[in-house]
Design a protein around this nucleic acid. Structure first.
Length: 107
DNA sequence: CTTGTGACTGTAC
DNA sequence: AGTACAGCCACAA
């Protein structure tokens, strides 16, 4: 069974609308994770997700607007592929425009 | 108990 | 622009 804070993180991630993305720091703030290293715990929480999870973890990117996730040798840009399918445009370096796609908790 | 690692961020050079 | 360092926390061994 997952820890409460992990579920809290997943709950926040699940609120990200389609075609939008959020940064780890943002997720941490919304999830109410204390401390400055909260972003790490967010990443750790996502790492604990199952393969069949329904959480849109692919909408979570780092502060640079790039997909993080360890590069799986078999799925090098799985996350990017999922985002592109939602209408998110990536730059050449696999970077997206955070100023444009960053999710805002309130409209 | 200690140590090492990690889907990170911000500041400094 | 990129690179390096520090910060802080959870988890596995």
């Amino acid at each position: 069974m997952a820890s409460e804070r992990n579920q809290r993180v997943w709950q926040v991630v699940a609120r990200i609308p389609e075609g939008k993305v959020a940064t780890y720091g943002q997720i941490a703030a919304l999830a109410g994770l204390p401390g400055r290293s909260a972003a790490r715990q967010v990443g750790y929480a996502l790492s604990a997700l199952s393969e069949d999870t329904q959480v849109p973890w692919h909408r979570v990117v780092n502060a640079k607007g790039q997909v993080s996730l360890r590069a799986d040798p078999e799925r090098p840009d799985y996350q990017r592929w999922l985002l592109e399918a939602e209408g998110v445009a990536f730059g050449l370096g696999g970077v997206l425009d955070l100023a444009r796609y960053r999710w805002k908790d309130e409209p």
